[in-house]
Amino acid sequence: MHDPQPLPPSGQRGGYRYYDLVMVAFVAVYLCSNLIGPAKAAQVTLPVFGPLTFGAGVLFFPISYIFGDILTEVYGYARARRVIWAGFSAMAFASLMAAVVVHLPPAPEWRNQAAYEIAFGSTWRIVLASLTAFFCGEFVNSFVLAKMKILTRGRWLWTRTIGSTIVGEGVDSLLFYPLAFYDSGLIPNEILWKVMVSQFVAKVMVEVVFTPLTYKVVGALKRAEREDYYDVRTNFTPFSLKA
């Protein structure tokens, strides 16, 4: 195996140039996936398959896994861990404040309370299911990618971006849908597994489609940051903010 850090890491030479921007993008996409997407059920008609109904959040959420792959590949698991915690904390705060605002008594002349509740009034069961699935799925995704990078000696990036996403999204889906919807009355139990599988496949396909772009972004960041981190001696506990 080649030297895990062939160049002095830019984080030790005065700070990374783009790490904070990638963090902001990751958090923004995650918030969009939970605050904008879930309120709308969309339907498109596909050749051969016919009509396909899905939650609009599926357009956003896989992109957060792409950012997670980029963070771990370039900066390492520990720095990706800080970003995952930032996203988790931002979503927890946004969910709390959304609940507070929804439950504030509306002014008598304001007539949009019902629409506001539809858009921002997620139940605490769904919020907790989303936070739990995100926390577990993102950390599994980052862990698998970091280990696969060592195993493949940094070659075949596509195998670890797609492979880690399959495992991470699998954990996310297996946790979120039963925790959020089993015996809830919102999705019949007999079709819950079909919804879970279809959403999982859609999210993985987004990762596959974006693989060429992921290659370009990873390559550009590695050159700009002069960093290509290998987690050889990393402490993989998720319960730390140490980079």
Rank of each mutant, 00 (worst) to 15 (best):
Y18P: 03
G55F: 13
F67Y: 15
A28R: 00
L174Y: 09
T211P: 00
A28C: 15
V74P: 14
A42D: 14
W193K: 11
L21Q: 12
G219V: 03
F200N: 04
V127A: 14
F49P: 02
F135A: 04
L71H: 06
T123G: 08
E207K: 02
Y177V: 11
Y16Q: 04
F61Y: 15
D228Q: 08
Q199D: 15
V101E: 03
T237Y: 05
D172A: 07
S184M: 11
Y215H: 06
V171K: 02
V44G: 10
Q12G: 07
L104T: 04
A25F: 15
F88N: 00
L128V: 08
M97L: 09
A90R: 00
A92E: 03
F49K: 11
I150G: 02
H103Y: 01
P47I: 01
T72N: 07
D3R: 05
A42W: 09
Q113H: 13
A90T: 02
T234W: 11
G57N: 01
L52C: 12
Y77N: 02
A224Y: 09
V218K: 00
C32Y: 05
E190Y: 14
Y182S: 12
P51V: 09
P108L: 05
P38F: 09
G87L: 05
A92N: 03
G15Y: 04
W110N: 05
V171D: 11
F93Q: 09
T165E: 05
V171I: 14
R226Q: 14
C32Q: 10
A28P: 00
P105Q: 06
A28I: 11
F61L: 09
R13V: 12
L52N: 11
A98R: 00
Y230N: 10
L179P: 06
K40P: 00
C32A: 15
F200L: 10
A25D: 07
A78N: 09
F210V: 13
G50W: 07
T159C: 07
A56R: 07
G55S: 15
A220V: 05
Q12T: 13
D172Q: 08
G55D: 14
R153H: 12
W85A: 00
A133H: 02
G154K: 06
S240P: 08
C136V: 13
A220M: 09
P238H: 09
V74C: 12
F200H: 07
V144C: 04
T159I: 13
G76C: 00
E117D: 14
M91K: 09
G170M: 12
N34P: 06
I118F: 15
A114G: 06
N34L: 12
Y30E: 15
D228G: 01
L21P: 01
G50T: 06
G121A: 06
L157D: 01
I166E: 07
A42H: 13
Q199W: 11
I150K: 07
R125W: 14
Y77M: 07
T234E: 07
T123C: 12
E190L: 08
P4V: 01
P47C: 03
L221R: 03
L104N: 01
F236A: 02
F93L: 15
W158S: 01
C136W: 13
F26A: 12
S240V: 01
S164M: 02
